[in-house]
Simulated scan of single mutants.
Amino acid sequence: MTAHPSGADPLTLEVVDLIGSVVTSYHAEYEQAASQHELTGTQARVIALLSHQPLPMRRIAERLKCEPSNVTGIVDRLEARGLVERRPDPADRRVKLAAATERGTEVAAALRSSMAFAGEPLAELTPREREALRDLLRRMLDLPPA
């Protein structure tokens, strides 16, 4: 095996390029799906996050890799559309949680189901292959096993 300037072997470089292609395709389709709901990609990502569980603004900002002040504006716009609401954190009433409304949860589900990019290629994999892919991705992201 020959050395590469980056120190990575050809297989690793190919995998990195393939992951980059997947991410690029995913983001393009996500932006398109969001626009069909008159949302920006970031607004759609916030609704997707909140459809799983209510989160404080700082946690949303951490997940989006942005400033909490940006999240406040995004949540304000989503709240004005009836997709998100603010509620007190039961564990600490000084903290406000952003939570998807029923309508917001429906929009998040519609966004997920409209994204053929992820669904179609994954449907070509067997359940065992999808599980292996999931497990490898979780390991790469340092997440606990499923």
Rank of each mutant, 00 (worst) to 15 (best):
L137D: 02
E79M: 08
R77A: 12
G73C: 01
S113W: 05
S51V: 06
K96N: 14
N70G: 00
S21N: 10
R63P: 00
Y30K: 04
E129Q: 14
P127M: 03
P121M: 07
H4A: 13
L133G: 02
R139C: 04
T101G: 01
S35G: 03
P68Q: 01
A91C: 06
E29N: 01
E131N: 09
V22Y: 03
E62C: 04
T12W: 04
A34G: 03
L97Y: 05
M140H: 09
R93L: 13
E106T: 10
Q43W: 05
R81I: 00
D9W: 04
R58W: 06
L136M: 08
R59I: 14
A34C: 02
L11W: 11
A99D: 15
K96P: 05
A109K: 12
A33W: 06
A110S: 15
I74R: 08
V95I: 13
A80L: 07
E31R: 12
V22W: 00
A61L: 11
E85G: 04
R63Q: 14
M57Y: 13
L11P: 02
D135N: 11
A28I: 12
E124G: 01
E14C: 10
A28W: 13
Q32Y: 14
A91T: 04
E79H: 11
V23R: 08
E67Q: 10
A48D: 15
R134M: 11
A146H: 10
R63E: 14
P88L: 15
G7Q: 11
D17E: 07
T2A: 15
E129H: 07
R86V: 05
P127I: 07
D76Q: 10
R45E: 14
A116K: 10
R94M: 03
P54N: 01
I19C: 04
R45G: 03
P121C: 00
